[in-house]
Design a protein around this nucleic acid. Structure first.
Length: 210
DNA sequence: TGAATGATGCGCT
DNA sequence: GCGCATCATTCAT
């Protein structure tokens, strides 16, 4: 870390109650030192998935080969493949043995826009990472990045000197069960939150028209 | 402006 | 086989 105003999040950040971690992650920065270069983005939207009692959590039906990292130590990545063409990135939380994670849903590009897949001159930057599938595609993350140590040097998160975001909560998006829980957290002032979801949620995104 | 749908592959029952 | 923590496109209003 060359910049002394950038502080990599330590393992103890992740080893806490998942809702606390999720809320605190809004406004943090994620960095990927990829083979094609360094990318960085500011997190603006996440969702919490907590344990065996959360029907929407992949761990609800026990440990499998796919979700085993959720049961492991906090501060590791959980990346899974979905809908035949997308990947989703999660951050494992809670002490070992408590399966839980935070899904990264959207972020604002900060560095390395030119090497993000899907980048096109003239395309609004806020549309590069505004969804969990789009984030992984642009940030060039696949199942190969499952189980990475987030306190390492390839994929990690940082706290930076930055104005604290105004965080709001809402139901999670794209799930069938567990919609009563307000476990989605997002930056109310960001125009890079994901588009999918009920009109009430989308309305949090400022309209283009006056 | 919003609802419906097809693409596409894999994990799990 | 079915369903999925998605997205871009098409169609209806």
């Amino acid at each position: 870390m060359a910049n002394r105003n950038h502080h990599k999040l330590p393992r103890r950040f992740y080893s806490r109650p998942t809702l606390d971690v999720a809320r605190d992650l809004v406004g943090k920065f994620i960095v990927h030192e990829s083979p094609s270069g360094r990318m960085a983005a500011r997190i603006v939207e996440v969702e919490a998935y907590i344990g065996r009692d959360d029907p929407a959590c992949h761990a609800a039906r026990g440990m499998t080969k796919r979700n085993e990292v959720m049961f492991g130590r906090p501060g590791f990545s959980y990346v899974y493949f979905i809908y035949g063409m997308y990947h989703c990135l999660n951050f494992v939380t809670e002490p070992e043995g408590s399966p839980a994670a935070v899904l990264l849903r959207a972020a604002e590009p900060v560095d390395g826009l030119d090497i993000m897949a899907g980048y096109a001159p003239g395309k609004p930057a806020q549309e590069l990472l505004d969804g969990p599938g789009k984030f992984c595609r642009s940030f060039q993350l696949t199942r190969d990045h499952n189980g990475l140590d987030l306190t390492g040097t390839i994929l990690y998160l940082e706290d930076r000197k930055h104005k604290p975001p105004s965080v709001a909560a809402s139901p999670r998006i794209g799930i069938r069960e567990g919609r009563n829980l307000l476990w989605r957290f997002f930056d109310q002032n960001s125009n890079a939150v994901s588009r999918t979801g009920p009109a009430a949620i989308r309305a949090t995104k400022p309209s283009h028209r006056a």
